[in-house]
């Protein structure tokens, strides 16, 4: 009821102010679509749905979640790039978006130029989970074991250029090990092979790893953020264990098509940040070890640029590319 009244007021105000510079303050006037470039049920989808629901309460207009999966987020991203930059079609992107740009040679869009970064949502660290019978408890012991073992060693990742692949190769570089990557179609099958002892470890999402570690099916070794996670405070960071500045985190952001009006971008950014600071959203992310990271639109754009640069460099050094 309240929502409808607010939007009715907004319509009136919009008519009164039409043509002035403040017209955007009435956003939105119609349902907003958030494109999820993955199938329902994945982390992007779940985060987008929570955000969408809270934005809907804030805006009093429906927020529609539209799954356009395929090509490792390229189909949904290409779709967004073609939409009108009116703020009514947005997309959730994750760290993978900046990694794809570094790895895939023929994307149907320019990842840096064809989109408007609007807001960063939050971040969650990855966890190194090792097979339960590995003779190592700490990051240092793991590294020593990996350096000295005569057995063929492997780690699991979820595709060339996936966050797990980048994390694994960065770890190889930092620790001076040569563990062979084995690619899986998803995080779950990679984890199964860790549990079964078929591969040594996998650097996976905390959402997937935590229950297995709690149950003793997988040995938790470390988190990949610069600071320890509140969800698993016992796990040391790699940075504190001798691998200086080691950081690979999963993050999500909201993007729009290129050419959005700056005032509109700032307005959506403020609304999203308002949702991020709510208890409901903080608790939602905390359940999986994540934290909200409200930023201004400009900070978000800079953050993404740093990510583009960094992953391009890592891909180059570690030879991560589609062969």
């Amino acid at each position: 009821m309240n929502g409808r009244m607010t939007s009715a007021l907004a319509v009136t105000a919009g008519l009164a102010l039409a043509g002035t510079a403040h017209a955007q303050e009435d956003f939105p006037q119609q349902p907003v679509t958030i494109v999820v470039p993955f199938s329902p049920g994945g982390s992007n989808d779940i985060v987008a749905r929570q955000l969408g629901q809270q934005l809907q309460e804030l805006w009093g207009e429906p927020v529609v979640i539209e799954n356009r999966p395929g090509g490792g987020a390229t189909i949904g991203s290409a779709y967004l790039a073609e939409q009108d930059p009116d703020g009514y079609t947005l997309m959730i992107a994750s760290v993978t978006f900046t990694m794809n740009a570094a790895v895939q040679s023929e994307l149907p869009y320019d990842s840096r130029e064809d989109f408007t970064p609007i807001a960063l949502i939050g971040q969650v660290p990855l966890v190194i989970g090792a097979r339960p019978d590995i003779p190592a408890e700490t990051p240092q012991e793991l590294i020593t074991y990996l350096q000295e073992s005569d057995e063929p060693l492997s780690y699991g990742a979820t595709g060339v250029g996936s966050i797990q692949h980048f994390a694994g190769e960065l770890f190889n570089q930092a620790a001076g090990t040569e563990v062979q990557v084995i690619q899986y179609p998803g995080g779950a099958p990679a984890m199964t092979d860790v549990m079964g002892g078929h591969i040594e470890y996998s650097i996976g999402s905390m959402t997937q790893m935590k229950p297995q570690i709690d149950e003793g099916n997988i040995k938790g070794i470390a988190v990949t953020s610069l600071e320890r996670s509140d969800a698993m405070p016992d796990l040391p960071t790699l940075a504190e264990s001798g691998l200086e500045d080691f950081e690979v985190i999963q993050w999500w952001a909201i993007l729009g098509p290129d050419g959005m009006d700056q005032a509109l971008v700032d307005e959506i950014n403020e609304d999203i940040n308002q949702v991020l600071s709510s208890d409901a959203f903080t608790e939602f992310l905390a359940a999986d070890g994540g934290t909200p990271r409200p930023m201004s639109a400009q900070e978000t754009a800079d953050f993404m640029t740093r990510n583009f640069d960094r992953w391009a460099q890592v891909a180059e050094e570690a030879g991560i590319r589609e062969e």
């Binding site: 329902p40 049920g41 994945g42 779950a188 099958p189 984890m191 549990m195 149950e215």
Partner: peptide, 27 residues
């Protein structure tokens, strides 16, 4: 019990659990 879907349909079902805040898995 493992949080590992055997088929695409199962993956969607698991997603449904996750959306409801239930983590399938050993626990």
């Amino acid at each position: 019990t493992l949080g590992i879907p055997g088929s695409a349909t199962m993956a969607v079902m698991m997603g449904a659990l996750l959306i409801h805040g239930i983590q399938p898995g050993p626990q």
